[in-house]
Design a binder for these strands. Structure first.
Length: 511
RNA sequence: GGCGGCGUAGCUCAGCGGUAGAGCAGGGGAAUCAUAAUCCCUUGGUCGGCGGUUCAAAUCCGUCCGCCGCUACCA
C-alpha cells in the first residue's frame, strides 16, 4: 500500500497580480510536494484561485469586465506564474468551477443539518465610501457628534439579514483539539496566538451576504451568497471529490498540510476546523504558516512601488537560483529580507563555488584522468568513511526538516556535507595522486561521486532542473533518483558524460 | 491596556544551567584539480541594562529599556 500525502497552497485571491509572496508560498509547498514524491509517497498537491466576493466584483467593474471574464483572466495569470516557478501541482482549482459550487452547497447543508447555522441580522457601522464595516472602538466622533471611520469616511448603522455560523459553540472543542494536537499549528508562536485568540471568546460568524451577488448561492435562500471564506476554504475538500466519497481522490482528505501565509492563519486554524467539525468531516493535520519578505530593506507594498514580480526575478537570476534563495535565506516561519547583493551572494558562494565547483572539479578529474570511467570504491580510510557517513545520515535529517517545514535547516545540513567534501578533496588531493597512486585516486573520486550523488538527490525538490543535470553527469539512472534509489550503488565502470558547469556565477551586466 | 515573542561577533543567526558558537564579511598562509573556485589558520562579543536564585546563568526568576506580533468577519 502506498503512503499518500495531500498538501495545499492557499488559493490566491484574484483581485490583484501575483507577487513574490504568492510565488514563495507556492515554491515552498512545491519543495515539500517534490520531497514527499521522492520519499515514495503518492502526493496530491493542490493550488488555484479564489474568485468570489465583493472585492473581485468591484475590481472587475473597475477593469470594465464582467466578473467571470475578469477572473478568467487573472486566474490564468496566476496559473502562468505557477508554471514559471516550476510548481508541480497536481490540480488547479478555481472557486468558480461547477464542482466547487456543488461541494459548497453540500458543505452548507451538512453544517445546517447539525444545527450550527441560524438566520439573524448582520449589523454594524458601515462606511459606504470604504465599503467596509468598522467596530465601535475604531470610530472617532467629530465635534458635531457624527461618527467617522479611521479613514475619515462617514459611517451609518446598517442592518441586513444574514445566516450565522454558531462559532461560539466550538470554542472549547477547538481548544481541546489544539491541546490534543500540538503540531496542528506551526510555528509555535502562531499556535500561541491562535490559542490566545480562541481563549478570548468566539463570536458567531456571519456567513452569508445579500448586498452583492458574486458568490455561491446559499441553498434554499434566495438573495444570499456564501461568505467568501467559507467558499474559499472549502476548495481543499472540493478537490478531493466532495461530496462524492467514491471519488478516487476522496482518500486524500484530510489534508496533511495546508501551507499558508501568516495573515490567514485564523481562517485556517479556527474557522476551518470549526466548519469541518460541524459538518462531521475530518480536520486537516497541520497548518504551517510562513512570514513575509522585506525587499531591499523596505516592506513590499503597492504604494511604495517595490512589489516584486516573481517572473522578473526568474528572468534575472534563474529559476533554481531563486527557488534556492527563497528557501535558504530565511527560516520559513519568520520574516526575512531579500536584496540583490544577498541573492548574488547565495548564488555565487553557495551554488557556484561550494556545490557547482565541487561537482565540476571532481567530475573533471574523472573525465581527464580516468577517461570518464567511474572507478570502484576501495577499502575505506577513516577520512573516506567520515564523509560517506555524513552523507548517509542526510536523508533522515532532511526528512525530519521537511516534516517540520524547516526548509532552510535542511539546506544547512546538506551544505555541511558539501563543505566537508571540499575539505576532503583538498586533503586527499586526487590531482596529486594521479602522479603517485592512480588506484587510490580512483577510490577518492568515487567517494566524492557517491557523496555528491546523495547531495544532488536531496536537492532535487529545491532545484529540479539543475539537479537533474547534475545527476545526469553523475551517471545516476533516472529510475534511481529517489531516496530509496540511493540504496542502489552506481555501477563500477560506468562511463560518465563530460562534465559541464551546472551553476554559472552571477556576473553584473555591464551598464 | 492585555497576552506573547525577541534583543548573542561588523551582518544574518544557532545555543537556552556546566570553560562563548556557525555562516558571511575582515586579516594571514597553503594549494593550483576546478566556474580565480578550494583548504587551513586568524581578528572580533563584559551574550540589551540592573538585581536575584545557584557550586555554576546567554541559558532560571524579577525589573527596566528597545524592537516586533496577536488582540475577530465582509480574503
Amino acid at each position: 500500500m502506498t503512503k499518500s500525502f495531500y498538501l495545499t497552497t492557499p488559493i490566491y485571491y484574484v483581485n490583484g497580480a501575483p507577487h513574490i509572496g504568492h510565488a514563495y508560498t507556492s515554491i515552498a509547498s512545491d519543495v515539500l510536494a517534490r520531497f514527499k514524491r521522492l520519499d515514495g509517497y503518492e502526493v496530491f498537491f493542490l493550488t488555484g484561485t479564489d474568485e468570489h466576493g465583493q472585492k473581485v466584483e468591484k475590481a472587475a467593474a473597475e477593469a470594465g469586465l464582467d466578473p467571470q471574464s475578469f477572473t478568467d483572466k487573472v486566474s490564468a495569470d496566476f496559473k502562468d506564474m505557477t508554471r514559471v516557478m516550476g510548481v508541480s501541482n497536481d490540480d488547479w482549482i478555481r472557486t468558480t468551477e461547477e464542482r466547487h459550487k456543488v461541494s459548497c452547497a453540500e458543505l452548507w447543508r451538512r453544517i445546517a443539518a447539525s444545527g450550527d447555522i441560524y438566520l439573524g441580522h448582520y449589523e454594524g457601522w458601515y462606511a459606504v465610501r470604504d465599503e467596509a464595516f468598522y467596530d465601535e472602538s475604531e470610530l472617532t466622533a467629530k465635534p458635531d457628534g457624527a461618527k467617522v471611520a479611521p479613514s475619515g469616511a462617514p459611517v451609518e448603522w446598517v442592518r441586513e439579514p444574514s445566516y450565522f455560523f454558531r462559532l461560539s459553540a466550538w470554542q472549547d472543542k477547538l481548544l481541546k483539539f489544539y491541546e490534543d494536537h500540538p503540531d496542528f499549528i506551526a510555528p509555535t508562536s502562531r499556535r500561541n496566538e491562535v490559542m490566545s485568540f480562541v481563549k478570548g471568546g468566539l463570536h458567531d460568524l456571519s456567513i452569508s451576504r445579500t448586498t452583492f451577488s458574486w458568490g455561491i448561492p446559499v441553498p434554499d435562500a434566495p438573495g444570499h451568497v456564501m461568505y467568501v471564506w467559507l467558499d474559499a476554504l472549502n476548495n481543499y475538500v472540493t478537490a478531493c471529490g466532495f461530496p462524492d466519497e467514491s471519488s478516487p481522490r476522496w482518500h486524500h482528505w484530510p489534508a496533511d498540510v495546508h501551507v499558508v501565509g501568516k495573515d490567514i492563519i485564523r481562517f485556517h486554524a479556527v474557522y476551518w476546523p470549526a466548519f469541518l467539525m460541524a459538518a462531521g468531516l475530518p480536520v486537516p493535520k497541520r497548518i504551517s504558516s510562513h512570514g513575509w519578505w522585506v525587499v531591499e530593506g523596505e516592506k513590499m507594498s503597492k504604494s511604495l512601488g517595490n512589489v516584486i514580480e516573481p517572473r522578473k526575478l526568474v528572468e534575472t537570476y534563474g529559476l533554481d537560483q531563486i527557488r534556492y534563495f527563497l528557501l535558504r535565506e530565511k527560516p520559513f516561519g519568520a520574516d526575512g529580507s531579500m536584496s540583490h547583493p544577498a541573492i548574488v551572494s547565495r548564488i555565487n558562494v553557495e551554488l557556484a563555488n561550494d556545490l557547482g565547483n565541487l561537482a565540476q572539479r571532481s567530475l573533471s578529474l574523472v573525465a581527464r584522468n580516468l577517461g570518464g570511467v567511474l572507478p570502484a570504491r576501495g577499502s575505506l580510510t577513516e577520512d573516506d568513511a567520515g564523509l560517506l557517513d555524513a552523507a548517509a545520515a542526510l536523508p533522515d535529517l532532511v526528512r525530519a526538516c521537511m516534516d517540520r517545514q524547516t526548509f532552510h535547516e535542511a539546506l544547512e545540513d546538506i551544505w555541511k556535507v558539501i563543505r566537508a567534501a571540499n575539505g576532503y578533496i583538498d586533503r586527499q588531493a586526487p590531482w596529486a595522486l594521479n602522479k603517485t597512486d592512480k588506484v587510490r585516486m580512483g577510490e577518492v573520486l568515487r567517494v566524492l561521486v557517491d557523496t555528491i550523488r546523495v547531495v544532488a538527490t536531496l536537492l532535487q525538490p529545491y532545484m529540479p532542473d539543475s539537479m537533474a543535470r547534475m545527476l545526469d553527469q553523475l551517471g545516476v539512472p533516472p529510475g534511481d533518483r529517489s531516496l530509496a534509489g540511493l540504496a542502489t550503488p552506481l555501477a563500477d565502470g560506468l562511463t560518465l558524460p563530460p562534465p559541464q558547469g551546472v551553476f554559472p556565477r552571477y556576473v553584473e551586466p555591464v551598464a
